[in-house]
Design a protein around this nucleic acid. Structure first.
Lengths: 176, 176
DNA sequence: TCGGAAATCTCGATCTATCGAAATACTTTC
DNA sequence: GAAAGTATTTCGATAGATCGAGATTTCCGA
């Protein structure tokens, strides 16, 4: 539940100015985070013989349990042939396997092999450890706040990347 | 796995478990944010006739006041010829201009024209506005907490991308 | 059972980013 | 003032990702 009160606030003007600056600083930092994260991702992808797009697809394969080649093409906006190439690379690198859907044998289901999962975790390990260390320094309530913020950030990024004139990145309620 | 029972002692094991899960969830969400941010950046870069790398360089040119071509090559790790190509694209797109350094006329200083800055802001506008809306919903203390978290995240990302001697990343490259 | 539709793959072509080597323009050193 | 060094660009070549068209396999409705 929220504890905010609808009380009119006669605050000093420099306080609200500080607040605006703080907000702007956070926005800048978040944007900066994006750039740095991209760099890191690119470096890690390179070490696995993939490109950043492929690495993102690996992640998708991990999270979406019944990912098909066609669905992947839909999500990424690539042509089906390009998607085949992406899957080739992911498979060659040992991240995924192609499994024909027994229910519809035209379909190819992308399953994460889990074989190189450990290496990926190791690659992301330093980041994860450092992040855990940062997060451990907060108490439970603060963590909840941070979680809420990050989740909301995530939501709005998802909304923004779901372009109306493009493919529906928003997954419709599982029409199967 | 053991079934969870209701006979929790006065210790609070599931509290610390909740905490660990919360931390893991935040880490996942942050990572997710990175992916989504990348998507957005790519989409925006495309709209400006650039690639994500170029867009990052545009940002660098904005922030670093006396950026030279050589320094840009150093930062990005590209060859000098590739850097020339990057500058060509950035210049053709109207983001920067090449100015010969009067102090050393071999050098080319990259200066942001500011001409398309407005458009860039417009492109990132929806993200910024949505983010501002999210941030406005927090009180000052909460904002300070968020700012601290984001800044610390930034710091560790910078540290990780700066170090070229990430040992765990160099894992056996041969996929079986 | 047959024919059209759907999912994926193969193949050939193209486009782009990158590299290395050599060229150019300028500076510093002797 | 010439030679060596530095910063950037040009040029040719290459590798990689992507696309479109067509082939292949499988599903589904009549």
């Amino acid at each position: 539940m929220s504890t905010r009160t609808g009380r009119d606030r006669d605050r000093a003007p420099d306080r609200s100015r500080d607040r605006a600056e703080l907000i702007a600083a956070i926005e800048d930092a978040v944007r900066d985070n994006g750039g740095r994260g991209q760099l890191l991702h690119q470096a890690i992808a390179e070490r696995f013989g993939l490109n950043p797009t492929d690495l993102k697809c690996v992640d998708l394969a991990r999270t979406e349990p019944r990912l098909t080649a066609g669905r992947l093409a839909e999500i990424t906006g690539l042509s089906t042939s390009a998607t085949t190439a992406v899957l080739d690379r992911m498979e060659r690198a040992g991240f995924i396997e192609r499994v024909r859907d027994p229910a519809d044998r035209r379909r190819v289901v992308v399953v994460s092999t889990g074989r190189r999962e450990q290496e990926l975790n190791t690659a992301f390990g330093p980041l994860k450890d450092a992040m855990t260390a940062v997060l451990e320094s907060y108490d439970d309530e603060q963590l909840a706040l941070i979680a809420g913020f990050v989740r909301r950030l995530n939501d709005l990024l998802r909304d923004l990347t779901a372009q109306p004139d493009d493919k529906p990145l928003t997954t419709p309620p599982e029409a199967r």
